[in-house]
Amino acid sequence: MTASTLSAAAEVAVGSAAPDGRHRSTARRASGSRKPTRLRRTIEIVLLIVLCLVAWQVAATSGVFGQNSWPTLGLFWSTAVETVPTQAYWVAIANTMISWAVGLAISVIIAIPVGLLIGSTAFLRRLTTPTVDFMRTIPSIILVPLAVLLYGSTNQMKIILIVFASVWPLLLQAVYGIRAVEPVARETFSAYGIRWRDRVRFLYLPTASPYLATGLRLAAVSSLLVAIGIEIIASAPGLGYQIGVKQANGLAASSFVYLITAAVIGLIITGVFTFIERRAMYWHPSRRGANS
């Protein structure tokens, strides 16, 4: 009986149940046949890359960006082969990534508990909403002079500014996440007298996790942007510093090697955190059955 009811259920079940799609990054599901779509996408991506390389070469040889400020593909490649094995290259990456990781970790440690607390208390929410709304509109860059004055051009200064930029998206997502808890689900937990610890583990965190994962992705990307931007502006050690200083000294090809490195790291971070976000949402109406 079960097998037949189950298969019959499959048609009925769609969309009949469970939390509504209030989550912000509503994922769209590829509809219809998959294989031709994937092949087409691959072709499109390859075409796009080829197009970019052609545009690069045209930009480099035409001289519209001034003499020697945009290296040709050949020069870029030979410089890259030279730069990548050097210690300076890896030290620059390490400096950027360490401040990125530490800044992000501190943001998570501060923002998530505070956000969950604010989100679950109506009084705190009313009290803090105006402040949070104001603070998150302040770009980190404005604080660079103050931070440099206090800490110099150090990783510490970078980390403080990263935290300042990343804490807000995380905090807001944590607040949204906790507010998304279904009242009926909460009552179910309390009707069965489920302990506080289990409520956090089986109700609050799972409900909030898609929101937290979105906040984490936003924070991870903005942390990198802030890290590199501040390295350029304030000459703090890292990829950004190398990009700026090489460009200023007329070493455009070397500058591009660091620039492209930063872009690749950005892509990897986005990819990894998008993956995490999707995993956190396996049960969510917008993603059901799309993975695992």
């Binding site: 469970a18 939390p19 009926v184 069965y192 007298g193 289990d198 799972p206 396996y282």
Partner: peptide, 26 residues
Amino acid sequence: LVFQDYSRSLMPWMTIEKNVTLPLRR
């Protein structure tokens, strides 16, 4: 108590077995 809005009283992130054993943790 079995709620009127039963679909919302089941946790979508938990399997049926986990949902059923949830109150037994106590």
